[in-house]
C-alpha cells in the first residue's frame, strides 16, 4: 500500500441509502442463486466497509441478516409479494457475507456466503407453546407424510405423474397431533396410471415444478391427509441443451417409492 493512503476503506452507516442499495443487490443475487429452500428478504444490515480497489472501483464488504419468506426459490412471485415467515411458524434466519464490486457504476458480486439458522425451539415455545416446531426431513413422520401426500395428489391428478424434488419444510403440530410438510414436485414423462417404478420416470425437458403443502393428522382410527399444490409455469431448458436429443434425466430428483397401500382417508 502506498504511504499515507490511510486505512484504505471508508465507513458508511448501515442505514445509509447507499448501503441499503448494495444490500438489496446482495439479496437479489442470493435469491437468483438459490437452488433450494425459500426466498430470502433483508432484515438487518450488520456491518459495512467500503474498500478502495486499485486501479479503479470500490468493494463493499457487507454483513447482512435475512429472513426466510413463504415463497419457494422456484416460485416466480415477485419478492415484494412474498411474506416473511412469522416467528409463530418457526422462523429461519440467514447470516450472509458479501463482497460487491462497484466499477463504472455497475455492481458485481465477488463473494457470497450464507448460513441459515432456525430460531430455537425454546424461543418459539416461550411465546407460543402450541406452535408447530421444525423437525428433520428424515423423521419417519415426515417421510410418511410426504409419500402419502404425493400419492394423494397423483391419485387425484389423472394426467401427469409428479415426483418429489425436495422436502423444504417439516413441522410437528401438537394439537391435533399432526405433521405439516412443504415440498417441491416436478412433472415427469409418466402418466399417473402407468407408474409402477417412479424411479424410471424422467423429469420433462421443459421443467414444470410445483410447490405443495400437506398435513397428515394422526388419529386413533387412522390418519387423514390433505394436500394442496401450486404448479408453476414451465421453465424452458437451458440454451446449451440439445433440443433434438432425448429428454434429460435429472439426478437431483429423489426417487419416491409408492406407499404400500392407499392412505386410509384422503382429502385433496
Amino acid at each position: 500500500a502506498p504511504q499515507g493512503a490511510g486505512l484504505g476503506f471508508r465507513e458508511l452507516a448501515c442505514d445509509d441509502p447507499e448501503t441499503e442499495h448494495v444490500a438489496l443487490i446482495a439479496v437479489d443475487y442470493l435469491n437468483k442463486h438459490l437452488l433450494q429452500g425459500f426466498r430470502q428478504i433483508l432484515n438487518q444490515i450488520d456491518k459495512v466497509k467500503v474498500w478502495s480497489r486499485r486501479p479503479f472501483g470500490e468493494v463493499y464488504e457487507l454483513e447482512i441478516d435475512t429472513l426466510e419468506t413463504t415463497c419457494h426459490a422456484l416460485d416466480p412471485t415477485p419478492l415484494a409479494n412474498c411474506s416473511v415467515r412469522q416467528q409463530a411458524e418457526h422462523a429461519v434466519e440467514g447470516d450472509c457475507d458479501f463482497h460487491i464490486l462497484k466499477q463504472d457504476g455497475q455492481f458485481r458480486v465477488l463473494h457470497a456466503q450464507c448460513h441459515s439458522t432456525p430460531d430455537s425451539a425454546e424461543d418459539v415455545r416461550k411465546f407460543c407453546p402450541r406452535c408447530p416446531i421444525l423437525i428433520r426431513f428424515n423423521d419417519t413422520n415426515v417421510v410418511h407424510t410426504v409419500k402419502t401426500a404425493l400419492a394423494a395428489f397423483n391419485a387425484q391428478n389423472n394426467g401427469t405423474y409428479f415426483k418429489l424434488v425436495e422436502i423444504s419444510r417439516a413441522q410437528n403440530v401438537p394439537f391435533p397431533v399432526s405433521t405439516l410438510v412443504e415440498f417441491v414436485i416436478a412433472a415427469t414423462d409418466c402418466t399417473g396410471q402407468e407408474v409402477t417404478d417412479p424411479a424410471k420416470c424422467n423429469l420433462l425437458a421443459e421443467k414444470q415444478y410445483g410447490f405443495c403443502k400437506a398435513t397428515l393428522i394422526h388419529r386413533l382410527g387412522g390418519e387423514e391427509v390433505s394436500v394442496a399444490c401450486k404448479l408453476f409455469q414451465t421453465q424452458p431448458q437451458p440454451a446449451n441443451a440439445n433440443p433434438a436429443g432425448p429428454a434429460p434425466t435429472v439426478g437431483q430428483a429423489a426417487p419416491v417409492a409408492p406407499p404400500a397401500g392407499p392412505p386410509e382417508s384422503v382429502v385433496v
Binding site: E11, L12, A13, C14, D15, T19, E20, I41, L42, N43, Q44, I45, D46, K47, V48, D65, L67, V84, Q87, A91, E93, D119, D123
Partner: peptide, 27 residues
C-alpha cells in the same frame, strides 16, 4: 473535568453507524 459549551463532546450522543435497523424481528 466538566465539559464546556462548544466542546465536541457536548453535541449530544452520536448514533452508531452499525448495525442498522431491524426490518421485521430478530431471532
Amino acid at each position: 473535568k466538566v465539559g464546556q459549551p462548544g466542546d465536541a463532546g457536548a453535541a449530544g450522543p452520536v448514533a452508531p453507524l452499525c448495525p442498522g435497523r431491524v426490518r421485521y424481528f430478530k431471532i
